[in-house]
Simulated assay, not measured.
Amino acid sequence: MQIAAVQQEIQTARERGPLREIKIPPCPEHLRRLRAALALPQPDLNEVQAIAAEDVAMSATLLRVANSPVHLGGGSPCVSVGQAMTRLGLNLTAELMTGFLVRNAIPVNSPHLARFWERSSRRAAAMRLLAPKLPGLDVDLASSFGLFQHVGMPVLLQSVRGYGATMVEGAARLDRPFVKTEDINHKTNHAVVGALVVRAWGLPQPLMAAVRLHHDFTVLTDREIEPGVPLLVAAGLVAEQLMRRTESLPPDADWTQHGEAVLNWLHIHANELDEWADQLAELED
């Protein structure tokens, strides 16, 4: 399946299929500005700083992270957004700002998705950790994928009657994948809806395709799909497993079924996985 085919699938489902009634929150204007500033041949740091400064809570987020023990070291505390950006670097600054803006655009107030955005942010951090270790994995796409991978869940929860019960059922069933339960109950699933969000917000097409296919590991052997998409999907599964290790949780169903194949496809050894899990834990301390 090529990216164009994923795009057409989403378009058809939106026009004539089960996505017609799904309400997609609009992309925050600050996020559009941020991505435009970052997309320039030389990213516009003044614009990035201006965007952050326009929201007191977003500025406070950058300062809090910049002054955390992980980043403070023996230095003096940052007192301005500019100082925080310098300490954090552009990639992490952009990741934190994106996460803040997306959380506020798609709020989650449900016990069915407890800690949803916290875990999404941790997944983005795990993907950022993996980016320099996996050749060809773009750090911006990687962290965005970590953040948006399951974004279809809160959108479905807000738009579709009974989706909360589907989440409970899907998590409890052992006879079929979670997305299969979603498909049976609602004729769509969070991967499709998440791809719709990414598409509607004008985010990169490889990100849209990877969100759509993040439970479909046949992409690893699909010669039609653009190479960046299976790399994101495979790295996403590794990132989830790293997170679960730091949380002392057992492997999820995808890892149990596909983890070995993904590690082989990425040419990752088990000892590397142990080392990366330790590195992720250190980032979170």
Rank of each mutant, 00 (worst) to 15 (best):
R14H: 12
R16Q: 14
I24S: 06
I24C: 05
P26L: 07
R33K: 02
Q7K: 14
A13H: 11
Q8T: 07
L19Y: 13
E29Y: 12
A5W: 00
I10D: 04
P18Q: 03
H30G: 09
R32E: 02
E29Q: 14
L31H: 13
A39L: 14
R20K: 15
A37I: 03
A39G: 15
H30N: 06
R33L: 01
A39K: 15
Q11V: 13
C27M: 04
R16M: 08
R16L: 10
A36Y: 04
Q42F: 03
P25I: 01
R33V: 00
P41R: 15
A4P: 10
I10K: 08
A5V: 03
A37H: 00
H30P: 08
I10Q: 07
E9P: 14
R33T: 05
L19T: 13
A36W: 02
C27Y: 03
E21M: 01
E9T: 15
E15K: 09
E15I: 00
R14L: 09
P18F: 02
I24E: 04
P18L: 03
P18H: 04
P43S: 10
H30F: 08
L34Q: 06
Q11N: 09
E29W: 07
P18N: 06
L19G: 13
Q11H: 08
L38T: 08
Q11W: 00
C27L: 05
A39S: 15
A4F: 12
C27P: 03
P18K: 04
